[in-house]
Amino acid sequence: MKAVLEVKGLSKDFGGLRALNGLDLDVGEGEIVALIGPNGAGKTTFFNCITGMYEPTEGDIFISPTGNGNVKERLQGLKPNQVTAKGLARTFQNIRLFQNMTVLENVMIGRHCRTKAGIARAIFRFASQRREEREIVKKSFEIVEKLGLKQYVNEFAKNLPYGAQRRLEIARAMATQPFLLLLDEPAAGMNPHETDELDELIRKIRKDEGISILLIEHDMKLVMSLSDRIYVLDYGQKIAQGTPKEIKNNPVVIKAYLGEEIDA
């Protein structure tokens, strides 16, 4: 299987603190990979390094977009918006929606990097701009519908219930047409019913769009049911990797999660 994302020896220092230490990770085409670990293990830092929000201290990040043969591209040094344009889209752990825009507009923002009408075209409303605008609206509606947000389409994002806000984050990321979706704790704060729906939704996204998914999650039930492979992080270091079954029985992982007693 071809790897769409390949990370080699990624490290990130904050002053004297090493938040990530020589991390290797890859995500295969069409795979759902989970990144788990206790709080403060460096999971979100890892996302930030990949998406260009932080500059890694060491290491390499390569991508090989779906349907692009075996061409490898380096990702370092790109700004977050350029990374998104390359086809990696993310959601945020602490929801970061555009509060005073409607649901549809939030999704339409995601289309920004796939469209190109500039100031002049916006002012004169040339035919090309109108066509593009219609295209944006149409695509955005499709995504909104797919993510089950149809009923909220013209609501302000800030007025949405919590679960819907999480789904809107995913919708917005999907609108950028990614080949790899990075989800940062998508199930946080959801009730079991909503989590089940999310499980289904993520599977559907992979199946229908062929998007690979890398997710950070604390809900073990979701992680075990969803992921093809799991990476476990502790103190910025990878302590285990493998299939859900392997991880479940890995003593090192259990120790990291539950403390020392297991050893005795």
Partner: peptide, 21 residues
């Protein structure tokens, strides 16, 4: 327009705005 929405997104959340490309 596309530009106008980008401005509003910038006003609402600079980080998310960049992450959206």
């Amino acid at each position: 327009s596309r530009i106008g929405r980008a401005w509003i997104a910038l006003r609402e959340d600079e980080i998310a705005c960049q992450a959206m490309g």
